[in-house]
Computed example of a mutant assay.
Amino acid sequence: MSRTVYVNGDYLPEEEAKVSVFDRGFLMADGVYEVTSVLNGKLIDFDGHCKRLARSLTELEMTNPHSNAEWLAIHRELVARNGIDEGMVYLQVTRGNPGDRDFAYPPADTAPTVVLFTQAKPGLADSPAAKTGWRVISVPDIRWHRRDIKTVQLLYPSMAKMAAKKAGVDDAWLVEDGFVTEGTSNNAYIVKGNKIITRALSSDILHGITRAAVLRFAKEAQMEVEERNFTIDEAQKADEAFITSASAFVMPVVEIDGAAVGTGAVGRVATRMREIYLDEMRKAAV
């Protein structure tokens, strides 16, 4: 059955959804996006995604086309129309269609292009991978240096994911100047004893919405959190490792570049943090 998608104020069958070939999102990757998970028909950490969207738009000198209340109404309408119980809502805002290709930004009054669609993901919260863990490889991080902006420039993350797929593993961790930055579409962590270690926020990594929530819950659970750089070698020697993202929540990592992490099985910290996160997010979902 065809999905209903949202394009510039209209709810349309996906087959009828169109944007201009001159749209700067298509020609220049000049746009930002967010992905909000849906559990039990409700949106997870929606306010956090709205705040990051607003920040990304501001960093690119783009106007936010909707208020948080308007964004919420659009999300809820799409979830309802498409009958999403578990899944995701993808949102993208580009600088729009200036009428012709030009490197310079178009006039400030150029209307942005706004697109949203849903993806049904039954079993999202009960993913079998959470019981077995992910295996990852490391690849060089050669992306641009404003990774804190959630742009649609996703070619290199796609290439890194394909490198992981060809290697027969689940994902890749990106490495720059000898240190792990993040995963291809997630934040990376290691665990030593009762301490969770993850890279500090900067323009080097995405300011993960799930990251912020998990670190808050970890501190509330009396776990120590240390925000600093770490190497692949340190990660391989850690007790545990895991990643966080809006779609994977908290996902254990059991192998890095062929070396088992800890016992090579899913650890108690990652398991507990996933349980806490899902429980708290379900309570706060809208």
Rank of each mutant, 00 (worst) to 15 (best):
R3Y: 15
Y6E: 02
G9R: 04
D10M: 04
L12N: 02
A17Q: 06
S20I: 13
D23Y: 08
D23G: 05
F26H: 12
L27Q: 15
D30P: 15
V32R: 00
V32S: 01
V35Q: 03
T36F: 00
S37W: 05
S37Y: 05
V38G: 01
L43V: 03
F46S: 01
G48H: 07
C50L: 06
R52T: 03
R52P: 03
A54R: 00
L60E: 07
L60C: 06
H66L: 15
S67R: 09
S67F: 08
A69P: 00
W71H: 06
W71K: 00
A73Q: 13
A73W: 03
R76T: 13
L78V: 14
V79Y: 12
V79K: 14
N82M: 10
I84G: 07
D85F: 09
D85A: 11
E86S: 05
M88K: 12
L91G: 00
L91S: 02
Q92S: 09
Q92P: 03
R95P: 02
G99R: 03
D109C: 01
P112V: 14
V114E: 04
V115T: 13
L116E: 14
F117Q: 04
F117A: 05
Q119G: 06
A125T: 09
A125Q: 11
D126A: 14
A130F: 11
I142G: 02
D148I: 08
I149G: 05
K150A: 04
T151M: 07
Q153N: 09
L154G: 02
L154Q: 10
M159P: 03
K161R: 14
K161W: 10
M162A: 12
A164F: 08
G168W: 13
G168V: 12
D170R: 11
D170P: 04
D171T: 04
V175G: 06
V180K: 13
T181D: 08
T181P: 04
T184I: 07
S185Q: 04
A188W: 07
Y189F: 15
I190E: 08
N194D: 15
I197P: 01
I197Y: 01
S203C: 05
D204F: 03
I209Q: 02
T210I: 04
V214C: 10
R216Y: 08
K219T: 15
Q222Y: 15
M223D: 09
E224V: 14
E224S: 13
R228F: 01
T231E: 07
E234G: 08
Q236D: 09
A241T: 12
S245R: 09
A246P: 01
A248P: 01
V253A: 06
V253Y: 05
V254I: 13
E255P: 06
V266P: 01
R268W: 00
T271P: 02
T271S: 06
R274A: 05
Y277F: 14
L278T: 12
E280M: 12
M281E: 14
K283I: 12
V286Q: 11
